[in-house]
Computed example of a mutant assay.
Amino acid sequence: MTIETQIAHSDDCPICSERMKQCFSAQVLRKYQANYEVCDRCGFLRARDPHWLNEAYTSAISSADTGLVMRNISIASKLSGVLYWLLRDRGAGVYLDAAGGYGVLTRLMRDFGFDFYWNDEFCENLMARGFEYNPEIGSCNAVTAVEVFEHLVDPVAFVREILSYSGAKTLIFTTELYSEGDPPAESWWYYTFATGQHIGFFQRRTMEALGERLGLKFASANGIHIFSEHQIDEARLGVVTGRLMTHIAPIWVRRRLGSKTFSDHLLMLEKMA
């Protein structure tokens, strides 16, 4: 029995070990009745025993994810400011986009000048071929995980494994947090019952509990969340991910780091030869 199966059948919250309680049922993939349960202590909300996942992932990225391209453009703009102005290395070093999908974010970040690499066990790399990560490249300054947490059966294991694999001390990620209090109504768009892929949902206090368990500090602003061994100033995070700075940061950073678009083009031609 895999760790995912063990946790899916456990009555305890995988974040804080409190006993979970059922809160509602819903139909997923338009045919399976799923039970959803919540942890009163940390607010983690999940689908219990998501036995339909193999079917849900016949395609790694759902055709209903029409926001994929615009989301990656927006997040790349925010990340450029975060990596350049908030982390200590000013954009130097290696970065990894974990569960990187088609490689859109990796390509955008390389175009901005960052030495980004891709990794995804379940999806084909279409946009960042030749820049697949392996530990021989070296430890990463930070890892990104865009729209990944809502797909996880065991968030604790994911964070531990990706930080260990990459050697990074900082994980920057996105997922839609729900407000304090009762779970959102079944009309909440982020459940995406029809695709069956979103199985875990978080509040801020869920993330704080997860960070505490892992010995990491949590910070969040404008949809960008960070776990790090170092405390991130949320006020500064709010500034660099705000509307004005997300217009300025990509231009500023690209001029200082130098875009890798053409150098990557030459590198790929050399590899082809």
Rank of each mutant, 00 (worst) to 15 (best):
G138M: 07
E208V: 12
N125I: 09
P250V: 04
R71Y: 01
F201T: 00
S62I: 03
S63T: 14
S63A: 13
I251F: 13
V38L: 12
E132W: 07
T195A: 06
I226G: 05
L177D: 02
L266H: 13
F227K: 02
A145H: 02
V159N: 08
G81V: 01
R256S: 06
L267C: 13
Y165C: 08
G238N: 06
T170I: 05
E176I: 02
T5D: 15
I61E: 10
N222A: 05
G101E: 02
V82P: 02
A235P: 10
L214E: 10
Y95V: 08
V146W: 04
S187I: 00
V38Y: 11
I248G: 09
E176Y: 00
Y95H: 10
F201Y: 05
G138T: 06
S25M: 10
I61S: 09
S74W: 12
I75F: 14
A8F: 05
G223V: 05
L108C: 06
T5A: 15
I248R: 10
H230L: 15
H151T: 00
I226L: 08
D97R: 03
S10H: 09
T261E: 13
A76F: 05
R19Y: 12
N134K: 11
F24G: 03
I162D: 04
S179M: 12
Q197F: 01
R236Q: 13
Q203R: 12
V38Q: 11
L83Q: 05
V253I: 09
L45T: 01
E270N: 15
D40Y: 09
Y102D: 12
M70P: 10
V239W: 12
P184V: 00
D89L: 13
Y84P: 01
F131I: 09
R46P: 07
A157N: 14
R255A: 11
N125W: 08
V159Y: 08
D182V: 11
E147K: 01
W189Q: 04
I137C: 05
H230M: 14
T2L: 13
A221D: 06
H225L: 11
Y102L: 15
H265Y: 15
P250W: 04
T5K: 15
N119M: 15
E234W: 10
L87D: 03
G113K: 02
G91R: 03
S263T: 14
V240W: 08
Y84D: 03
N119P: 12
R110V: 03
E37A: 11
F173D: 01
Y191C: 00
G91S: 06
R46I: 07
G196P: 00
H9A: 15
R30C: 08
S187K: 02
E55H: 07
T175P: 00
K31C: 09
N72M: 04
D154P: 07
M127I: 11
V38H: 12
Y57L: 06
H198T: 03
D49H: 11
R46F: 07
A157S: 15
F227G: 02
G223T: 07
S80K: 02
C140L: 04
V143Q: 06
